[in-house]
């Protein structure tokens, strides 16, 4: 199922499927935010924004409005 990253819930894991390169700066891509890489929500800040993520082993925080431009597929735990 296709979602965008801003809908990820705490502890959930997903794989990045597409990144809108017009809206996402190169810097974020270079930090590992690329199609095929795994992403996990570590924590949400108070007031639900920004998101503290583990992307491809890197820990970073981005705002939800940026996360909305990153498409993901959730990994379901069996």
């Amino acid at each position: 199922m296709q979602d965008n990253l801003s809908e990820l819930k705490r502890g959930e894991q997903a794989i990045i499927t597409d990144v809108s390169s017009i809206h996402i700066p190169l810097k974020l891509l270079e930090m590992g935010c690329l199609p095929g890489n795994p992403v996990k929500l570590v924590q949400l800040a108070p007031f639900q924004d920004p998101m503290y993520l583990n992307i491809n082993g890197s820990h970073l925080a981005i705002r939800k409005e940026t996360a909305a431009h990153i498409l993901i597929e959730k990994v379901t735990h069996e």
């Binding site: 700066p25 810097k27 974020l28 930090m31 570590v42 920004p50 503290y52 890197s58 820990h59 970073l60 925080a61 981005i62 705002r63 409005e65 940026t66």
Partner: peptide, 9 residues
């Protein structure tokens, strides 16, 4: 453009 990314070391 509003944009924000920070590494959490």
């Amino acid at each position: 453009k509003s944009f924000f990314v920070i590494e959490m070391p």
